[in-house]
Design a protein around this nucleic acid. Sequence first.
RNA 1: GGAUGAUUAGCUCAGCUGGUUAGAGCACUACAUUCACAUUGUAGGGGUCAUUGGUUCGAAUCCAAUAUCAUCCACCA
Length: 758
Amino acid sequence: MQKEISKTFESGKREVEIYQLWEKSGLSNPDIMKEYLEKEGFEVKSPFTITLPPPNANGTPHLGHMCGYAFHDVIGRYNRMTGHPTLLLPGKDHAGIQTEVVFTKHLASQGIDKQKMGREEFYKECYEFCIVNMKEAREYEQRIGLSADFSREIFTLDERLTKIVYETFYKMYEDGLVYRDKRIVNQCPNCKTALADIDTEHEERRGIFAYIIYPFVNEEGKKLAKEKFGVEGITIATTRPETMLGDTAIAVNPNDGRYKEFIGKKVLLPIANREIPVIAEEETDIETGTGALKITPAHSPIDFEIGKKHDLPIVNVIDEDARMTGDIPERFKGMGTIDCSKALVKELDEMGLLVKIENIKHEVAICERCKTAIEPIISNQWYLNVESLAQRALEALKKGGISVIPPGQQKALEHFYENIQPWCISRQLWWGQRIPVWYSGGKKMFDWLNENKGKSIQDFEKEFNTKATGSGEIFLGEDMPESQNGEIWEQETDVFDTWFSSGQWPYTTLGGPDGEDFKKYYPTQMMIHGRDILFWWTARMLMFGLYRTDQVPYSLALLTGIILAPDGSKMSKSKGNGVEPSEVFEKYGADALRMWYYSDALPGSNSPLREEKIKGNRNFVTKIWNASRFILMNIDDSEVEVIVNAKVNETERVKSTKAHVKKVKKYIEKCQFNLGAEEIRGFFWHQVCDVWIEEVKAEIKDHEIGSKVRIEKLTELLYILKENLKIMHPFIPFVTEGVWQELVKLGLAKGLLMSQQI
RNA sequence: GGAUGAUUAGCUCAGCUGGUUAGAGCACUACAUUCACAUUGUAGGGGUCAUUGGUUCGAAUCCAAUAUCAUCCACCA
């Protein structure tokens, strides 16, 4: 008799329904899964945990995110089906700077000025903005089939999480690892905040190389120079003439014969009219420019180091908005750096001190987020001395406590740890976790005392001609401390670098080192993310994890491939070559997309989106549906009970199926998902469908309903189908569950495929 | 400048610790088929496995050099 099973697996509609079925079961919650295993009498193995990488809450997920989820889910489902109460813990990241930039733009597009809005209101509205995005992101996560425990979903700005992040900060302060320091930092004039070195990129841009003469102060020097160089001074070459106003020396290589006799002499810095020395510095490259290097400690990282070495004064001439400032001629004050550069070059030319200007291309540091050229300036920031933390992480790596796939990236990580520098963790933003520090008497006084070691509050009062309003100490905590002697407490305005909190993700999400979930589910088993954030994220998580929990937060970092646009370029909104996940879901379904990821987005590879391949996988999904449907159609209602209770004979087909299942399990355990995907596809399609079903078709052809041959053959075939569905489920959960539920309807199976044991 | 990885069919890539005629998906060709399959099946074409040396009974696989590409790191004024 004809059974009512639709002719195709309508992925668009069915996938959503099936997800609801899973959600209702609650089995994504490991506590519930554990109860289920106990109740059913299955062996309960150790819990399996992954704290899922939180996507940025400022936008919607793209195909790259989906790829990560697909890999998490195949592993999660497999573990759940092999007896491990499995926790895939989802969350969202506030993504500090990026979100602040995005939301500020969003406000501007509505004609709203961020500054006028004020900090509190901005934070509140940005939070709401994120909540909306988070909801949408969650829908996508569920759409790809992610069997995460959404009852535990958490946001990085959640109070519970922030509390733990603050505890880490306090502990680090006590351990002397975090401190305030005045040094050169990368300032993004557009985002108006300091950035860590890692948050900058380098890009080749067009620029100028200006050759400028710095004349000697005394006649003797002038004469000597005139004889040697034909001009009365040393010619330096610079890409940034405007920084000359902050020059405090000229450096030459001591081995450079041209300049040997000038070392120690003084030149007159043109326009600024300041006398600066010629110093010997081995770092100076004889080949570059004229071999003479102007030193601006306040506005160049390398000059800062040289200045420190030679104890040179620091003269600030550029402020945090990239405008000219400080002790410079009035006419330049407030100018942008580029305008100032032009004006200076013109004046120098008129004075006869400009030799020439070359147009060159050179690498400049830019802001990773907004691509604005970085302005190195001196400022007070909070730093984390990561050296000891990096050391521990490095040891763990080398001892094999954690491994990275692909292995080449592990070496990159080791290299990162070996060359790590103090991490600037403060950001001059509103969006993020406010650094929990209060300054008695104000931040300005604290910084002044900090940078002028040995000076007293009285000196401060004298210097600024004011009355101190506190002791100059700091207090760590969220709430303002009580005023004892009438001192005034000023709250820190900076927030933490977003990675300071996301770096603690594996334990903050579990309630911190004292949390209930932490005790049950930490350490986690693995972490999967794009290799583009290896240093930002995995590097930090290992350091924080070891620091706070004395354990590696996970023992395996699996880096996925990067999903590219069909033409092989990076998908980007600005280029308009992106493909929305919703389009793919609608056209081919989540299972087909997942299969493509497993086959193509291998660790270490870049995978251009190939629609025809996803289509091929869609055909596979259809094949599964139809083959299953055919088997079910062949089983007569009257045969159901007999078949369900029949013993499965150990035939060649059954043996071969068992061997297949074993093989796929091995592939999954070794994270060789491409091989696993190929194996399930090849076996089901070309063995089960093309050969066995055809054989059975012939074998039962002339036998009556209920006959021994039919029962035997159909029992065998049903067994093969079920085993295949189970092993395919972690890869393509929707269609397999869809078929399973048809079996359930006919009384041929029970429960959810999701919780069956392999 | 440094590091890491890649180079295998038209395309995207598999090929683990070296072992008989080198694989998959998609694309292509021919035939069959509307019998569960918005199709599917069968058969087939297509590769000096980047180049050159070496180790070995045997190399796509190990080693060395070269070339090209990619990604990451780096303060070049």
